[in-house]
Design a protein around this nucleic acid. Structure first.
Length: 215
DNA sequence: GAACGGATTTTCT
DNA sequence: GAAAATCCGTTCC
């Protein structure tokens, strides 16, 4: 098991994002270990990216994005869900990669239990298919915000793929396209995924939320 | 297979 | 007051 060095993240998020495909995110909790191999990510920057949380400057929520690379930025969204990012670029520069989807490679039973919570069973491909689902399967929430993922003692960390699972080799093609759920800067192809992988979430163009009916 | 509404916090206007 | 880096159940093709 080899963790990814911090230098890897000390680049622009657009460069880090495609290299992250195939890497494995692990979360060690009291219940056990769940690991997910990434198949879909999106890059975000700061001041020059209108779709980024950091576009309008530093807030209490996005402060971690402005910090040093190799840390996790976890945010709560739509009143119900968490999404996790890995912070890139130098300290002081807001930049991150959103982890959108992946395949569970360890702790699948535990991940399934977290995802279903007693309801219908979830198929293997759907366990971490989507950013909020990925967090749910790994039991990630705001208490992991700011966690250093580059140290072995951390409960949340990122490592290179196993030797036998070359997801990011010449065999696998990487596709790019517009980011999901983003209304501004939709022309920037900063979404990266492993072509043909069943765990990649289906693309949905941004649909503006219909305004509430006020009779 | 696609489209819509609901849940509900953080942030900005 | 409204929109957002979402998911899920329901409804209608």
């Amino acid at each position: 098991m080899t963790l990814i060095p911090r230098d890897f993240f000390a680049r622009l998020s657009v460069q880090v994002a495609p290299d992250l495909l195939g890497c494995v995110l692990e979360h060690q909790t009291a219940d056990g270990l769940v690991a997910v191999q990434l198949t879909e990510v999106e890059a975000y920057t700061g001041a020059t990216d209108p779709a980024s949380h950091a576009y309008r400057g530093k807030t209490k929520r996005n402060a971690v994005m402005f910090g040093p690379p190799g840390h996790a930025y976890v945010y709560f969204t739509y009143g119900m869900y968490f999404c996790v990012n890995l912070v890139c670029a130098a300290d002081g520069s807001a930049s991150a990669v959103l982890l959108r989807a992946g395949a569970i490679v360890e702790g699948e039973e535990l991940a399934g239990a977290r995802r279903t919570r007693g309801v219908a069973a979830v198929s293997h491909r759907d366990l971490a298919r989507g950013p909020a689902r990925l967090c749910q399967a790994l039991d990630i929430d705001r208490s992991q915000d700011g966690t250093d993922v580059c140290v072995a003692g951390s409960p949340l960390r990122v490592r290179w793929p196993d030797a036998g699972t070359p997801a990011r080799s010449a065999e696998k093609k990487i596709a790019t396209g517009p980011r999901v759920g983003v209304s501004s800067a939709a022309d920037v192809p900063w979404r990266f995924w492993v072509e043909g992988d069943p765990t990649v979430s289906v693309y949905r163009a941004h649909v503006p939320r219909r305004k509430p009916v006020t009779p």
